[in-house]
Design a protein around this nucleic acid. Structure first.
Length: 520
DNA sequence: CACCCTTTGAAGCGT
DNA sequence: ACGCTTCAAAGGGTG
């Protein structure tokens, strides 16, 4: 069923809100081995720049100071772009993101420079893969939900983003005079951990989707056939319609062909950007998640014989909390670090993710939840399965015998980041207790951490190679050190917790040292 | 050029 | 329900 949030929302929220707060775990780590963890970061940082976790605010000053150190060909333009982005980010935070609506994170209006869209691609549309776009396709506008009620007054809540005052009010705010109020979206849960109740658009009784009234349309995204016209993606990037317009014939009926940009917004954009940059905004734009297969394949399939028709646009999966976090933070990490490899960056990000405070993580979980909600509304018939097999190929089945004692930390890369393999800090504990559901955990923020001790025990100081994708995690490199549970899998408590998720359950098999790299 | 790597989370499928 | 797989982003590395 289309996970329409509501009832679905609950569901949706349920999982996504399995926040893996690392608070406790982290604290614990901090006591004993956490030192290592921090050191981990420190190590990374050292090579990067000093950044402290709290300091993740690494704001601009820091970044800025670093910039000079980077020697890139197009550094300037790159910097400009990133600054813009950073500015926007800061603006989000300034707008009281953590206090008010998580969606305060959407008041961004991202407009990459035409000339450097490529560089920005990673900063922009989460759903548009560079390769999927034709050159012209890159002429799009990256835009985040205009925050109508940007609480300009709200003080900044995000400790990480101690943004300079100069940024706060630069966020473009779009006013929709004639549109149904987005208030639901904008005022979304002032309470970071609101009790879960069926969203307005869901029947309170059944929890099933019901036809929303325009005024109460989707709690987050007004989406009805009619409402669609005004809809834009929350995380949103507003691809130029000319490029992203969904092929009328190609779309599955259930896929809204396109999202029309409301006049206000388009005018705003238009006024702000040259027509060249904003092609046909008046008409419609597709959801960023949509990537026309035809377009996407364009690069590869040279032969365009008739592929256009059969293609149903490739709708990407909505980004999960971590992905959203990554998108947002990657630029910072990249800026602070000399590292360029995403794998390394991702490791750092993974660590930081665990080190995030509850509020910080919840912010992303909320965003992700909304993202999914929107996505489900936009593509009712879409299923993650639709994308199965889209990727080229996974790794082949490979069996690795890894004996605990033979783990050689051998980081794949000499890079510091890899070295930080102290997965320990990966805070298994945090992951383990992550299963806090919105109702449970989020609903009551304290919940997950209520009994830290339970979680901590884990001596799972070493995060086992990720079970899930047998593919990646289980590669030796990840198995950096003796795996704690190898010897006994971890305290009962941990074990208990391990059962909480498949991933963790997988840990049980880890000790076997038999890693299978699957692959299709 | 295609895929790997690496992260977490969501979702789907098979048992 | 559980275990496992795939995909989502990203971009340097690899063959």
């Amino acid at each position: 069923m289309p996970q329409l949030d509501g009832g679905g929302g609950d569901d949706l929220g349920a999982n996504d809100e399995l926040i893996s707060f690392k608070d406790e775990g982290e604290q614990e780590e901090k006591t004993a081995e956490n030192v290592s963890s921090e050191r981990d970061l420190d190590d990374v940082k050292s090579s990067l720049v000093n950044e402290t976790e709290n300091n993740s605010s690494s704001s601009d000053s820091e970044v800025t100071s670093l910039r000079p150190q980077q020697h890139r060909p197009d550094w300037e333009s790159y910097v400009r772009q990133r600054e813009f982005f950073a500015e926007a980010l800061r603006a989000q935070h300034d707008s009281g993101l953590f206090k008010a609506s998580p969606y305060a994170t959407y008041p961004l209006l991202m407009i990459p420079d035409l000339g450097n869209l490529a560089n920005l691609s990673h900063l922009g549309n989460p759903y548009l893969s560079p390769g999927a776009l034709s050159p012209s396709a890159r002429t799009y506008i990256q835009m985040k939900w205009p925050m109508l009620d940007v609480p300009g007054t709200s003080a900044l809540k995000d400790p990480r983003s101690t943004s300079p005052a100069h940024m706060s009010n630069k966020v473009p705010v779009v006013q929709h005079g004639h549109l149904p109020p987005f208030s639901p979206l904008l005022s979304y849960s002032p309470d970071p951990f609101p009790p879960r109740t069926p969203p307005p658009h869901l029947s309170p009784d059944t929890g099933l989707p019901r036809t929303p009234h325009p005024a109460e349309l989707s709690p987050y995204y007004p989406l009805s056939p009619g409402g669609m016209g005004h809809m834009t993606h929350p995380l949103g990037w507003l691809p130029g319609q000319s490029v992203y317009g969904i092929p009328a014939g190609g779309f599955r009926p259930s896929y809204p062909a396109a999202l029309a940009m409301n006049s206000s917004m388009s005018s705003l954009v238009a006024s702000r950007f040259s027509p060249h940059m904003v092609p046909s905004l008046q008409t419609s734009v597709s959801h960023p998640a949509i990537v026309s297969t035809a377009i996407k394949q364009e690069p590869r399939d040279g032969n365009r014989h008739g592929e256009k028709e059969e293609k149903k646009p490739h709708v990407k999966k909505p980004l999960n909390a971590f992905m959203l976090y990554m998108k947002e933070q990657r630029p910072k990490v990249v800026a602070e670090c000399t590292l360029k490899e995403s794998a390394a960056i991702n490791q750092i990000l993974g660590r930081r993710w665990h080190s995030l405070s509850r509020e910080e993580q919840s912010k992303y979980y909320d965003m992700a939840r909304k993202e999914r909600q929107l996505h489900s509304q936009l593509y009712p018939g879409w299923s993650a399965r639709d994308n199965y097999g889209k990727r080229k190929k996974r790794k082949r089945d490979v069996f690795y015998f890894v004996s605990p004692e033979h783990f050689s930390p051998q980081p794949k890369k000499s890079c510091v980041s890899y070295g930080t393999q102290e997965r320990p800090s990966a805070s298994p504990a945090s992951s383990l207790d992550s299963p806090a559901t919105p109702t449970t955990a989020l609903a009551s923020p304290a919940a997950p951490h209520t009994h830290p001790e339970q979680v901590q025990p884990l001596s799972l100081t070493t995060k086992p190679p990720r079970p899930h994708s047998s593919s990646s995690n289980q590669t030796p490199p990840l198995l950096t050190g003796p795996i704690p549970f190898a010897s006994g899998l971890a305290p009962s408590t941990s074990i208990h917790q391990l059962t909480m998720s498949s991933h963790h359950a997988m840990l049980q098999s880890q000790p076997l040292s038999l890693v299978t790299r699957n692959n299709n």
